[in-house]
Nucleic acid binder design. Structure first.
Length: 261
DNA sequence: ATGGCATGACAATCATGA
């Protein structure tokens, strides 16, 4: 089973890239962020034509999340949740559902803009609500995965220039502490279960030839419970998608799992 | 030097991203 996450930075603009990637990678479950499309305009039929059922919550202009399920996944999506429990929030950033024995949460964490900003306080509130929600889910679902654009680079190793980014939003102690709290609650960073190529990140700024210069951050993650980690066989950042014409500034992350029961 | 680039709403610039 392959479970993936991708911040597409507008599903309308990136639909052809997504379709191409689905055909090549053939994931079972895909978490999308920054769809930037209201539900009435979500390209559900185009994705169905690719073999994927979609669950989605969008809004005008900003945010928007979706979970795609390959039709080979026969199970119905159970226990569907939109919006982070315990947080009053008009922004569409969160979905969770259970399919074929795996609970998957798709999250678009707030960016935070800058540490002085009100948006950073919102990010901390959002992180606190997530932190409050996780233990129950982990206890109820031995096979639980939290994927998405976390907008947190968990360690200096996840940053092309740690000194330049020290204390900046995405790299602050508070955000990194929140990330560690998730791992201490029982989730493992699937990417770090394996040796990985150097200077490989999930986000590269559109400006200043950042991708070509390998100036990026690893802020998109797949966190999994021990039972899934034990079955995880690979976790890959699909840099090929960042090389295309008119790419998303984020690359997909794909985690693969054995299904040996 | 708070810029650079991309997207969307809107109809010239502006909010937001990270």
């Amino acid at each position: 089973m392959k479970i993936a996450t991708w911040n597409v930075n507008s599903l309308r603009v990136r639909l052809a890239h997504l379709q191409q990637w689905l055909a090549v990678r053939d994931p079972d479950i895909v978490c999308l962020q920054e769809t930037k499309v209201v539900d009435e305009d979500f390209p559900a039929q185009a994705l169905l034509d690719c073999g994927y059922r979609a669950h989605f919550r969008g809004q005008k202009t900003y945010n928007g999340v979706a979970i795609l399920l390959h039709e080979r996944r026969r199970g119905e999506a159970d226990d569907f949740v939109s919006d982070l429990p315990g947080l009053e929030d008009p922004q569409r950033r969160f979905l969770a559902l259970t399919v074929d024995g795996v609970r998957v949460a798709c999250a678009y964490f707030p960016n935070g803009q800058s540490v002085e900003s009100d948006k950073f306080q919102y990010k901390l509130r959002w992180l606190a609500a997530l932190q409050a929600w996780l233990p129950g889910e982990i206890a109820r679902h031995p096979r639980f995965a939290l994927l998405g654009d976390f907008n947190i680079a968990p360690t200096d190793e996840d940053v092309h220039d740690p000194e330049a980014w020290r204390g900046q939003v995405l790299c602050t102690d508070e955000e990194r502490a929140a990330f560690r709290a998730m791992t201490e609650a029982g989730l493992q960073d699937a990417y770090r279960l394996f040796p990985q190529p150097a200077r490989t990140y999930t986000w590269y700024d559109y400006r200043n030839f950042a991708f070509r210069r390998k100036m990026g951050l690893r802020i998109d993650h797949a966190l999994v419970t021990a039972e899934l980690a034990a079955r995880c066989t690979a976790c890959t950042i699909d840099l090929e998608m960042r090389k295309l014409e008119q790419p998303s500034d984020h690359a997909p992350v794909v985690a693969e799992f054995r299904e040996d029961g």
